Deep mutational scan, measured.
Amino acid sequence: PPDDERKKAEKAARSGNEEKAREILERLGYSEDEARELAKRLR
């Protein structure tokens, strides 16, 4: 489910793995720019 994926992205971002967070968010349908912004904010 998307919620689980989003949680994974948050966890990745918090542990400093912004790249992985961005990949997950892009898979969820965010654009590259949106995903980058979100990954930064989740950190």
Rank of each mutant, 00 (worst) to 15 (best):
P1M: 13
P1D: 15
P1T: 15
P1Q: 14
P2V: 14
P2I: 14
P2E: 14
P2F: 15
D3T: 12
D3F: 10
D3N: 12
D3R: 10
D4F: 11
D4H: 10
D4A: 12
D4M: 12
D4R: 11
E5D: 11
R6E: 08
R6W: 15
R6L: 15
R6A: 09
R6H: 14
K7Q: 13
K7T: 14
K7Y: 07
K8D: 11
K8H: 12
K8W: 10
A9H: 06
A9S: 04
K11D: 15
A12Y: 09
A13M: 06
A13I: 09
A13D: 06
A13Q: 02
A13G: 04
A13Y: 02
R14T: 07
R14S: 07
S15L: 11
G16L: 08
G16K: 06
N17V: 03
N17G: 04
E18S: 07
E18A: 08
E18V: 14
E18K: 02
E18I: 15
E19A: 15
E19P: 09
E19D: 12
K20R: 10
A21Q: 04
A21E: 02
A21T: 04
A21N: 02
R22F: 04
R22D: 00
R22M: 11
E23P: 02
E23T: 09
L25Y: 10
L25R: 02
L25M: 03
L25D: 00
L25V: 00
E26M: 15
E26D: 02
R27P: 01
R27W: 07
R27H: 10
L28P: 01
L28R: 00
L28F: 05
L28D: 01
Y30K: 01
S31T: 13
S31D: 07
S31H: 03
E32A: 09
E32F: 03
D33K: 09
D33I: 09
E34S: 04
E34R: 03
E34G: 03
E34W: 02
E34D: 11
A35G: 02
R36C: 05
R36H: 08
R36Y: 12
R36K: 12
E37R: 08
L38N: 01
L38G: 01
L38Q: 03
L38F: 01
L38D: 00
A39M: 03
K40T: 07
R41P: 00
R41C: 13
R41A: 07
R41G: 04
R41L: 10
R41H: 14
L42Q: 04
L42W: 15
L42E: 04
R43E: 10
